[in-house]
Each structure stands twice: as structure tokens, then as C-alpha cells.
Nucleic acid binder design. Structure first.
Lengths: 233, 233
DNA sequence: AGTCGGCGTTACGCAAATGTAACCTAGGCG
DNA sequence: CGCCTAGGTTACATTTGCGTAACGCCGACT
């Protein structure tokens, strides 16, 4: 399933840099719009509502950091992921400290490949974050009803704890897509970052045991994460 | 405000009929999935969870009426409005008499325009179903009469305070669905936000004690909230 | 003023749920 | 064939959530 074409707003004051990035993003299948200073960037972000913004730190007029802060404070644009381009790695710490709300950082010079990867990463995260968990999910002999907080396997109710239920719901709602442990910790444990990733394994184990016959749906993708699939093996 | 695209499941064994309906519904902005017999219809309804079902009365295998009854008896699909297609107007009375639970009837041949109008009508009704508290709720040995502010357990009146009564009513009116403490505070205590969520627990305790034998209906879903259910344990 | 019932809060203890660590198993690679 | 790593499995200490009871405030009624 292929989503609609994503639009990226690229902001840099050097035409050469713009051209390079633009060329590579187009090649990767994105639509690109460009801006050359912070003011233009904010205007185009508000008007074009791009799916992601690549923003150079150093800009004439309104500089990149100020632009980032403005974008993130404006409810219209605050959900758009921002990748900041910095000249020196050392700058990143300082920028992060300012809590501008940028979502990722890339140091110049960067390989176009790396930038595209980071963009993909951020966009996919955005996709999965947006969709709220559906109220009911029915797959084969498994039924998940969020309203009633009820799980049925072949019609028989199964008792799950709150965490187990949420884990199952998140996996099932992303049917077929592999979720790595970090994603699961983020989505099930709500940004509670100080939890060991192996904890996910333990809960998967508990889930599988309780689901019995329906445990087949919970597949492991070695080295990557877990996935909800109809035919797992 | 434009909601998400609605999905309609169309069930008919004549490909021509499906095609006609499908074309017109698509034109009206709906997503359409199709099924050709009752069994397929039930399966696709459970898995696809469409927002509405258009169901022909005459079908091979499991016929339309049986399918309708099955759909309406299954908690997963029972909320989905069903429009039945019948060949003769005279049939409608008979079908209504069977109390299948269908929400509307359209006789063949029908104008696509008419069908679309009825669909819109049913869907909008679905959206605005903000369910006010019903006047009377009777579940097993428990009777709640809002008008008289009266609760009976196995025919015996039970004295409840105003808060207890409202809490019980709200829970009972959402039978089966789990309500978290915030929801209960909102609906029972009317937006009085400065109340500790643990207060809900205390009132649940008082309610349970007063209800005695009927306290079984009040289930706890650990980590989530409370639920009114017929079989709690 | 004094009493009383209803309500929100707080304290406490038990049991379920949870996170972690340790050990075991199996798949992938040389 | 044996190592190595990722994940399965198990056990356990800790944490959390809730039932329960007791307290104190407040308004109504006497």
C-alpha cells in the first residue's frame, strides 16, 4: 500500500545546497518546495503544509533556530517534523539544549542517502502516530474490542492486563508492519523511556501464553521486532 | 467539518446490482466493499467493520434475513446500521414482523439517489447518537428507574443517594463499555474537575455495599476503570 | 446550637501487575 | 561443528491499583 506523495520543504540560503538536496529527494519520490530564508520558510510551511521540513541552522533574516521555534509554537505547523542541518556536530548539543522542538539533526556535509533515510524514518513515525487505535479489530478468530476492553479468541473471552491489552492493540492495529521495541515502548508505554527494551519480550511472552491458539498472529522478526500477521511462520 | 470516509458493505448475489450500487456510492464519496452471499457478508462485516451494510434479502447459502439476524446478535457488528433490499414492497411487513433488527428497507428497483439518501440519513443518525440516559434500565435482577429515582434489587427497593444513583445510571447506560475515572467524573460529577479520581472508588464501594447481591454487575478493569457487565467475574 | 446524612479525602494493606535479571534455546555465521 | 547473539522462558522483588475503613467538612433539618 502506497500512501500519497509526501511534500518536503527545504530551507537553505545556499542555492547549491538546495539543488543537491532537491535533486536527491525528487529521486526518492518526494515533492519538494524550497525557501531561502526563515521568513519565507514560515510562510511556505503555513501555506503549503509540507509533510516534513529540512531546515538549515544558519539563515539570513529570521535564522533557522528562531524559525524552528516559531513553527513548533504555531498549532498549524507544530506537528510537522523538522530536521535541522548544522555545520558542526558540536553545535547539536547547544541546539538541543535550546529545546527548539526539532525532531532530528544532520551535520553538514551529509550524504544524501543519510538524509533520505532520516526523512523516511521521521515520516513513518508520523504515520503510525497519527492513527488512533480503532475501537474494534477483528482478524480471523481474534477479536479486540477497546470499548469493552475485551479480547475474544474463537469467541472465548481472554483476560488481559492493561499493558497486555494495549500491546496487542497496537500490534494488531498495524497489521503486517513490523514494530521495533523502541516503537512499542513509545506507543504502549507512552514515552516512558527508562524501561528496558527486553521488557517488551516479557510482555510478548505473557500475551502469547494467554492468547493460546491465537498466539500465531504474533510473529517475531529476528533482529528487528514484532509483528501482527495472519500467517506468521 | 468533514469526517473520515465511510465504508459501505454491499451484499447482493447479482453482479449487475452490485456494480450499479457500487458505482453510485463511490460517486457519492463512500468506500465500497462487496460480498455475494450471506456467509461472505458476515465475515467481511466482522473484519472490515463497515459503517453501514446494504443487504439483499435473497441470497444463496445463508440468506439475507439470517445474515441480518446474525449481524445484529453479534456484539461486534450489532451497532452497524443495515439497509435491506427487498424485491416486493409487500415483503417488508413480513420482514419487519420477524424483528431482524434491520434499520431501513428499500424495495427493488430503487433509484440510486434514494438509496444514497437513506444511507446518509442512517449514518448521520449514527453520528449524533449521543445517547441520553434512558428512563428505565432493567438488567437481570436490577431495575433502575430514573423518573422515580428508584432502584430495585430482586424487587426490593434500595436507597441510594443522588451521586450513587447517577453513577450507577451512567455505568448501566453504557453497559459493557469500560469507563475510566475521568469519564465518570465528567459525566457523574458534571465537569467538576477538581475532584480526586479516587473519590470515584469510594462511591463505587458505597454503591456495591448497598446493591448487595447485584454488586456483581459492577466490574473493575484494573488499570482502566469500571464497567457495568452482566457477567463480571 | 446541635445533630445527622452525604460527600470528598486520606491512610493502610493486600493482591495483581510489572520490570528486571538470570538462565535456556535456537538460528545464523564462520 | 561450535560460537555468538537474539529472543524465549522463568523466577522474583518491587510497584501499582484498588478495596476498605475512618475521618472531617458542610449544609439541612430540628
Amino acid at each position: 500500500m502506497k500512501g500519497p506523495v509526501k511534500t518536503i520543504l527545504v530551507v537553505d540560503d545556499e542555492p547549491d545546497a538546495i539543488e543537491l538536496v532537491e535533486f536527491n529527494l525528487r529521486a526518492a519520490g518526494y515533492r519538494v518546495i524550497a525557501a531561502e530564508d526563515g521568513e519565507e520558510a514560515i510562510r511556505k510551511a503555513r501555506e503549503g503544509l509540507p509533510d516534513l521540513i529540512v531546515l538549515d541552522v544558519m539563515l539570513p533574516e529570521v535564522d533557522g533556530m528562531a524559525a524552528c521555534r516559531t513553527l513548533k509554537n504555531d498549532p498549524i505547523t507544530s506537528d510537522i517534523p523538522v530536521i535541522m542541518l548544522t555545520a558542526k556536530a558540536a553545535e547539536i548539543d547547544r541546539i538541543v539544549g535550546l529545546e527548539l522542538g526539532a525532531d532530528d539533526y544532520v551535520t553538514k556535509p551529509f550524504s544524501p542517502r543519510e538524509l533520505v533515510l532520516r526523512i523516511k524514518n521521521l515520516l513513518s513515525r508520523q504515520d503510525t502516530k497519527a492513527a488512533p487505535l480503532p475501537a474494534k479489530i477483528v482478524v480471523g478468530k481474534l477479536t479486540i474490542d477497546s470499548d469493552r476492553h475485551l479480547v475474544l479468541v474463537s469467541g472465548e473471552p481472554v483476560e488481559l492486563t492493561a499493558t497486555e491489552f494495549k500491546l496487542l492493540s497496537v500490534l494488531a492495529s498495524r497489521r503486517g508492519r513490523v514494530q521495533n521495541r523502541e516503537q512499542l515502548l513509545r506507543d504502549v508505554w507512552d514515552y516512558d523511556n527508562y524501561i528496558d527494551t527486553r521488557t517488551v519480550d516479557t510482555h510478548m511472552r505473557r500475551l502469547r501464553r494467554k492468547l493460546g491458539a491465537a498466539a500465531d498472529y504474533l510473529g517475531t522478526v529476528r533482529g528487528v521486532g514484532y509483528r501482527f500477521a495472519e500467517s506468521s511462520n
